[in-house]
Design a protein around this nucleic acid. Structure first.
Lengths: 193, 193
DNA sequence: TAAATTTCATACTAATCAGTATGAAATTTC
DNA sequence: GAAATTTCATACTGATTAGTATGAAATTTA
């Protein structure tokens, strides 16, 4: 019964994600959203609730995509260390180029909203923890296979990688010299041995 | 000639700095500013220009204070490594407590404004570069005194410390387990040897 | 003391904000 | 095909936004 929805909810959410990712929560207006989602206001409100609900949905959409993206980039091939190195180098490469310096939506939200809203404090924290677990598993594989020393602290090193990842992602927003980032990557990866 | 200014410009700027530091640029309204600066709108506009000018003045005020703050915390005493360790541990301690998770004003701005305004891209980048130079000088001292290996890359390690500092400062906004941060500090400092 | 000048407080502006009421268009169920 | 139901577009709401015009209060120069 009733009329059929004319818009693709998933596409609309992706568009919302892009806008919030680029501009953040407060700098994004409903007008920005209607323009980019190609939807009228009532459609947005009926499908996603208010601005904050939409933001949360967009962020959850992002973290899900982000995790699967990272998982595929970290597919085990030969050396764990080389895989991680390539991951970091790719990060620098893609963020330097076309990608207009949006950084990581989750990190942006950690800075903008986590201190003011427990919901986002938890959401962003759990995402980072999840990332550290992925790194930890990789490092453990490296230990098992003999690539790394037996007495390496996989958990601690994985958490260090996450801290480094955040630092690099944030610092790149100020477009520092390439070598600044490269040096940080080299030093950090030298911990894996 | 004319009436004397009744307010302390420096105090007003400090108050503005606190508000922008806590809430960021977009989430801070002129009403927030008049309340916290205890000034009427026309007084703010005549003394500092518009909202963006005031923000820039507040940020410059912050970076100046921040540098002198860090310089005093990094006063050389005995071991360079211990001094740096203490610096990072203090950071965790103070940000965990009373300080209501504001993080670093400069880093917050790097995330919120640097990608959208070249003026802030430059300002925040230069601040981070300045910090790395301070670390670099310390590490060079450590090499000179024999505390560190002769072949340590002081510049690269200093830049790594800055990346780590940023990562930790940002991650703490999501209030992760204390050990997460502690592990990152221990690992990163293990590069100084 | 009088004129000149600056600060400050009130009250305002036009624009934009998030969110919604209303009714027409479209589709389904009966 | 008629009634019921849902979506969509237009146009609106009251609140809040950044920024300012105006005049009174206060101080200085002459």
């Amino acid at each position: 019964m009733g009329r059929k929805r004319e818009f693709d909810e998933e596409k609309a959410l992706d568009a919302a994600m892009q806008v919030f990712w680029k501009k953040g929560y407060h700098a994004t207006s409903l007008t920005d959203l209607t323009t980019n989602m190609e939807l009228q206001r009532p459609s947005i409100y009926s499908a996603f609730g208010d601005k904050e609900k939409l933001f949360e949905a967009a962020l959850r959409n992002y973290t899900k995509l982000h995790i699967s993206n990272i998982r595929s980039k970290l597919q085990y091939n030969k050396s764990v260390k080389d895989t991680i190195r390539l991951f970091f180098e790719d990060l620098v490469e893609e963020k330097c180029q076309g990608n207009q310096n949006k950084g990581c939506f989750c990190i942006n939200t950690m800075v903008e909203l986590a201190p003011h809203d427990e919901k986002f404090e938890i959401l962003t924290r759990e995402h980072q923890m999840y990332l550290s677990v992925i790194f930890q598993e990789m490092i453990q594989n490296g230990i098992q296979s003999g690539e790394f020393h037996r007495d390496l602290d996989a958990k601690a090193l994985a958490q260090t990688l996450v801290v480094s990842l955040i630092g690099i992602t944030v610092l790149m927003k100020s477009r520092p010299e390439r070598s600044f980032i490269d040096n940080a990557i080299i030093s950090t990866l030298s911990l894996l041995k």
